[in-house]
Write a protein that binds this DNA or RNA. Structure first.
Lengths: 127, 127
DNA sequence: CATTCTGTTCTAATATCATTATAACAGTAA
DNA sequence: TTACTGTTATAATGATATTAGAACAGAATG
């Protein structure tokens, strides 16, 4: 499990962790029905508190990305074949919009924005 | 100035404000060399504290989107003709990556992601 | 020149969030 | 039965976010 936490980042540790787990799933490095490490073991590996990891896992569960089985562990849900739900789509757009607006203000045009988006997708899916 | 603040949002007020100002600039609703309202008047309009607006303005100044002239006011910088600086580009990518990874996990493919990105750009630039 | 407006700075209080630390509990797996 | 699991509870600490009030000094305006 290749995860790197930066304790001094302005991004909360549990968010960094959730984001990196999402990237690992998106890349295929972790696959559906596989189990995530226990909150205690991952916390020990990363040098953070158990509750911090637990919080990250519950964030992923809220997004329907993993399923937490009480007193047992967490397993990864399969990637939706139907695409995102309306709610998922709305949240993605909500967070995407300010970033795109910022890109425009920085002087990027439509082609440039689509180009870096495309390159990030390749970066994730092709490693 | 069409700005809507949701006090109960999990997104801090100063971030909501900064984001909406960025969108107004990206859309052309506010143009370069125009002055932003004073922190006191905008705070009164929005029903928030002066310091909250001041914080939003300084966020925009850190991003080189506006220039704050001490004891005078804030004016909007012109959109960069050279495109983003390396630092600006890196930050955009850093924040874009987890969103794109999340989209992939939700079952979106490359074309769908590029499609909604394109639609958001149109939404911003064409109103 | 005097008034008003401006951002700046300071202190202060409150609320929320993030993180860590222990500890105990109850279900699961070996 | 033993070890491991997520759950829950309490507590403390530090950082943020927000509001409030006040004073200061430069800028704009009449």
């Amino acid at each position: 499990m290749f995860i790197q936490i930066e304790p001094t980042s302005e991004i909360p540790i549990y968010t960094q962790l959730a984001n990196q787990l999402i990237e690992l799933i998106a890349s295929g490095a972790i696959k559906a029905s596989e189990a995530l490490p226990s909150v205690r073991s991952l916390a020990a590996d990363l040098g953070v508190n158990m509750h911090t990891v637990n919080k990250a896992y519950h964030e992923l569960e809220k997004k329907n990305i993993i399923e937490i089985i009480p007193k047992s562990g967490a397993i990864i849900n399969s990637i939706s074949a139907n695409g995102p739900t309306d709610m998922q789509m709305d949240l993605i757009k909500l967070h995407l919009k300010p970033l795109i607006a910022e890109s425009i203000v920085y002087g990027m045009d439509k082609e440039q924005i689509l180009s870096i988006t495309s390159s990030i997708i390749s970066e994730i899916t092709e490693g």
